[in-house]
Amino acid sequence: MKQLITLNVNNETIEVYTAIHKTLLEVLREDLQLTGTKHGCELGECGACTVLVDGEPVLSCLALPIELEGQAILTVEGLAVDGELHPLQQAFADNGAAQCGYCTPGILLTAKALLDHHPHPSRDEIRQALAGNLCRCTGYAKILDAIEAVRVP
């Protein structure tokens, strides 16, 4: 069954006519062509599809757009503002935190939520916050370094 759904994605109000059983992940990627949000399992077991809903990290593979009307959805495409990279994006680039780059969008958003709530987390607190995002390339080391580079000391 299709339905017209109004979403706020990256500060843009978007109307999308889509099947209600499509997850936010599918709607972002397939209906809105926002392919920056990735998928690794579609079962909530890897963290690759993390987006922010009202500032909190959630898994888009297990969220229904119809339940998110009126909430602010932020994807990786919305992180940079006016062509200016978000400090986390810059730090990930500078620190080599993105190798294949596939888990990167989800990790960036998880990290943004962390720093928005806790501007000066310890390295252990960063580890805790990122424990729901699997990465196979980096051993997490450069990711932790990049977030540390951005945190308020």
């Binding site: 392919t35 920056g36 990930f92 680039a93 500078d94 993105a98 780059g101």
Partner: peptide, 16 residues
């Protein structure tokens, strides 16, 4: 140095 494709990767622009 940052990788030459680093900005694409951190903005989700890399086309997988």
């Amino acid at each position: 140095l940052p990788k030459v494709d680093a900005v694409n990767k951190v903005t989700g622009a890399t086309p997988f």
